[in-house]
C-alpha cells in the first residue's frame, strides 16, 4: 500500500453500520492517514494548530483514541499534533465520523500547507510579543491543505528565542518589538543595560542613561520589560518574516526578508508567497530551493507591495542565505 493513503484513488469495501460500503480514499482529502510498518495499520494524525487542545475535546479525543488504537497509544507529532497509532484502515469511516461528531479534524501530509505550529505567544507567556496562537488558528482556517509543490510548513514564534524554530520553516513569523526611549521618566538606574543580553544598550558612565545600538538589537523587548519607570516603551510590534528554511536530510536556514510586518499583513504575506512559489517552483521542490534557483531578489520584487517599507534589503537577505 502507498505510504500516504490520500494518494490512493482506489476504493475498498468496508463494513459500516452492518452494511457494506465503499471507502473512497480520495474522499479523505486532507490526508493525515499515514501507513505504518504493520500490515493494515495506520497512524491517524489529528489537526491541532499551535498544539492547543481544549480539555473537553481532549477527553473526547482520548476516548476515541482508546477505542481505535489497537495498541492503546498516541504520539505527539513533531508539529504539535496528536497522532492516534495502530488504527485499522477498515475503521477509518467510523473514526472520522466520531471525530466529526466532536468537531475535530484530521491533519494532512503530502505537498500542501500543513498544520501551523506556534509557541504560547503573548496570551500567557511573559516573553511573548505576538498572539501566535490566534495567528496559527487563522492559518489553519484560511490556508490549511492548500496544494503546493512540496510540503509547506508555517510556524509562529512569539519572540526572538524562537521556540517554534522559524529558521527551519518554509515560512516563519517571529515576534519582534521595536523599543523607544524617552528621557524624562529615565532615572539612569542602568537596569536596561543589565537586562539587554545583546549588548545593544550601554549605560552612560556619568548619568547611567542608556546608549542604544540598534545594529545589535534583536527586538526582544527585555529593556521595555525591565525598565522600572517606563522610559523604554514599545514603538511598534510585528513579525520578522523568514522564508525558505527546512530540516530533514539537508537542512537549510531560512532567509530573513521583512521586519516589523504587522499582524494584519500576515494573511497577505502567506497568500502571495504561495502564489510566487506556485508560479516559480517545481513539483517536489521546497520553496528554499526555488529561492536558491530563481533568486531571493525575484521573490522580494514580487512581494514589494506586500512588504512595503518592512522589506529587508535583497543584498542583506542574499548574503545571509550563502
Amino acid at each position: 500500500m502507498d505510504r500516504f493513503i490520500e494518494d490512493k484513488t482506489t476504493r475498498v469495501e468496508v463494513s459500516l453500520d452492518g452494511e457494506t460500503k465503499k471507502l473512497d480514499f480520495g474522499e479523505l482529502k486532507t490526508g493525515g492517514f499515514i501507513k505504518q510498518r504493520q500490515r493494515d495499520l495506520f497512524t491517524v494524525r489529528l489537526r491541532c494548530p499551535g498544539g492547543r487542545v481544549p480539555t473537553d475535546k481532549l477527553i473526547e479525543i482520548s476516548k476515541i483514541a482508546h477505542k481505535y488504537s489497537k495498541k492503546g497509544v498516541i504520539h505527539l507529532s513533531f508539529r504539535q499534533s496528536i497522532e492516534i497509532l495502530y488504527v485499522d484502515y477498515k475503521d477509518f469511516p467510523e473514526l472520522v465520523k466520531e471525530l466529526e461528531a466532536i468537531g475535530w479534524k484530521v491533519a494532512s501530509c503530502g505537498p500542501r500547507v500543513r498544520v501551523p505550529t506556534a509557541c504560547g505567544g503573548c496570551e500567557y507567556n511573559p516573553n511573548g510579543l505576538t498572539d501566535t496562537q490566534a495567528l496559527a488558528k487563522m492559518v489553519d482556517e484560511k490556508f490549511f491543505g492548500t496544494p503546493t509543490h512540496h510540503k509547506f510548513k508555517i510556524s509562529f514564534s512569539g519572540c526572538p528565542i524562537d521556540c517554534a524554530r522559524t529558521r527551519e520553516m518554509d515560512l516563519g513569523f517571529q515576534g519582534v518589538v521595536e523599543p523607544e526611549w524617552e528621557e524624562p521618566p529615565c532615572t539612569g538606574c542602568t537596569i536596561c543595560a543589565e537586562a539587554c543580553k545583546e549588548g545593544a544598550i550601554e549605560s552612560d558612565p556619568d548619568t547611567g542613561k542608556p546608549i542604544y545600538y540598534p545594529d545589535k538589537c534583536i527586538y526582544c523587548g527585555d529593556c521595555i520589560r525591565a525598565c522600572p519607570t517606563g522610559a523604554w516603551r514599545a514603538k511598534r510590534y510585528g513579525h520578522l518574516v523568514r522564508i525558505g528554511g527546512k530540516h530533514g536530510r539537508w537542512p537549510m536556514e531560512a532567509v530573513e526578508v521583512a521586519l516589523f510586518v504587522p499582524d494584519e499583513k500576515v494573511p497577505e504575506v502567506i497568500e502571495k508567497t504561495i502564489e510566487w512559489y506556485m508560479a516559480n517552483g517545481m513539483r517536489g521542490e521546497r520553496i528554499g530551493k526555488t529561492l536558491e534557483r530563481v533568486g531571493v531578489e525575484k521573490y522580494l520584487e514580487f512581494m514589494k507591495d506586500v512588504f512595503g517599507d518592512n522589506v529587508l534589503e535583497a543584498k542583506e537577505a542574499a548574503c545571509q542565505q550563502k
Binding site: P126, I191, E194, A195, K197, D222, R225, A226, P228
Partner: peptide, 8 residues
C-alpha cells in the same frame, strides 16, 4: 538576577 527579577 538583575536581568530577570525586575521584569517579574
Amino acid at each position: 538576577p538583575i536581568q530577570n527579577v525586575p521584569k517579574s
